[in-house]
């Protein structure tokens, strides 16, 4: 008889390997690039290859070898442009998230209450837009919203307005584009949560004297909370850093941080400043994620 040498040890080894895989992935493709960007954000721009100063100057005679500087962050604070675009981004992302929630909740609930063969069809409709290129869909909106676009033509020909409205290159077009693009990310997690709700729970509340609105407030909404939070994060986070939609649909004043970041990198070629912009953006994003995690822990405990 052979005894397997310490099977617990082998299990533990496997567990370590399995757990370390996603960590390795995150380390390699998230933390390492972030470390590089973080490092660059403390440099000065240079017309060179690479276009920034190194972190340490090993050849310096003075002994003052650390070349890192906080100038970029100081600049972010001083120049109003960055403040404006951060705030504008937060505002647009926040309002879009709210609109997605208002639009997505009834849709997700309706899908969850639809009987089966039809439910799959409705879910298919929600994810159908993903089958065409995102860029193409934004271009389609440009065509529809333009001065000679479908919407203006309809409005003019039906006599609702005298001359075409300025629809494209406005904040409204940006909201429209973001809500249109991201509403499926709101619907899907909401649907997943609402679908699992026990219908009896709603009837019990009604039976105990709750009006339909009270049932919604006391039962449906709190039980849908994990879905609401997940959906809002899935919309808010990419919307905050959105570059394409404001660039194509937005006007000159629809300046979002993604656009600013792009301009710093590719137009001004100021990599260190762009890195600083990215680092600050990341910290703005981490905040809601941490809030979400704390809420999850509260729910679980």
């Amino acid at each position: 008889m052979t005894v397997i040498a310490n099977p617990g040890k082998r299990d533990r080894l496997w567990r370590t390997i399995v757990i370390s895989l996603p960590y390795a992935w995150l380390l390699l493709f998230f933390l390492a690039p972030f470390a590089i960007v973080f490092k660059i954000s403390f440099a000065d721009p240079l017309v060179a290859q690479p276009p920034f100063t190194p972190f340490f100057d090993w050849a310096a005679d003075s002994g003052d070898r650390l070349l890192a500087t906080l100038d970029n962050y100081r600049f972010l604070l001083e120049d109003k442009l960055y403040w404006v675009s951060y705030l504008k981004s937060i505002k647009i992302a926040f309002v879009s998230t709210l609109l997605c929630l208002l639009l997505g909740f009834p849709m997700a609930y309706a899908i969850a209450l639809t009987p089966y063969p039809w439910r799959n069809f409705l879910l298919l409709l929600v994810i159908l837009p993903f089958w065409t290129s995102f860029l193409l869909r934004v271009y389609a909106w440009m065509i529809m919203l333009g001065k000679q676009g479908l919407i203006n033509n309809l409005l003019v020909s039906s006599g609702i307005v005298d001359k075409p409205l300025q629809l494209l290159y406005t904040d409204g077009a940006v909201y429209l584009g973001i809500v249109y693009t991201y509403v499926p990310f709101m619907i899907l997690p909401l649907y997943a949560t609402l679908e699992r709700l026990d219908p009896d729970v709603h009837e019990v509340a009604a039976d105990l004297g709750a009006h339909p609105l009270q049932v919604f407030r006391d039962i449906t909404l709190p039980l849908a909370r994990p879905g609401i939070i997940a959906g809002c994060l899935l919309v808010f986070i990419p919307a905050l850093g959105e570059y394409v939609i404001p660039a194509l649909l937005g006007g000159l004043d629809s300046l979002m941080i993604g656009r600013t970041l792009y301009d710093e990198f590719f137009v001004n070629r100021d990599w260190p400043l762009a890195s600083a912009v990215a680092v600050v953006l990341l910290f703005i994003l981490i905040l809601p994620i941490m809030l979400f995690q704390r809420m999850q822990q509260e729910v679980e405990s």
Binding site: D198, D200, V201, E203, V204, A205, I219, P222, L223
Partner: peptide, 9 residues
């Protein structure tokens, strides 16, 4: 109710 449907939250 048969399922009892106790409010889970």
């Amino acid at each position: 109710f048969q399922s009892y449907a106790v409010f889970p939250h």
